[in-house]
């Protein structure tokens, strides 16, 4: 086994609205070296998750925020933001309405 090909495992924290997809689990572990890879891994494990997070065009939905270790990926490299082994990703909907 080529250890260098093993992707980093990260923890993704999900809001209540998305937990129906994960059997009510608020935290799930998936592998990926970038936010995009994590989204793909989430969708593989919990089909339909990508559509919740991203439009069909691939862009992140405007009122969905993903934080990598506390930093909003919109101010990093977006979906191409790298994630380190053991990182914690928070998915949080925007504050809306005032």
């Amino acid at each position: 086994m080529d250890v260098s090909k093993v992707r980093a495992e990260v923890t993704v924290l999900l809001p209540h609205a998305l937990r129906k997809r994960t059997g009510n689990r608020g935290a799930v572990a998936v592998a990926g070296d970038s936010v995009a890879e994590v989204v793909t891994a989430l969708d593989d494990a919990y089909p339909g998750m990508r559509f919740h997070l991203c439009y069909e065009t691939g862009e992140l939905r405007p009122y969905v925020n993903i934080f990598v270790d506390g930093e909003n990926v919109r101010y990093l490299q977006g979906l191409q933001t790298p994630v380190a082994p053991g990182a914690r990703l928070h998915v949080i909907e925007s504050v809306a309405g005032g």
Binding site: G48, R50, F51, Y55, E56, T57, G58, E59
Partner: peptide
């Protein structure tokens, strides 16, 4: 579900 093709122009 009702979803346009992934990677296309429509959302």
């Amino acid at each position: 579900g009702v979803q346009f093709p992934e990677g296309g122009e429509r959302k």
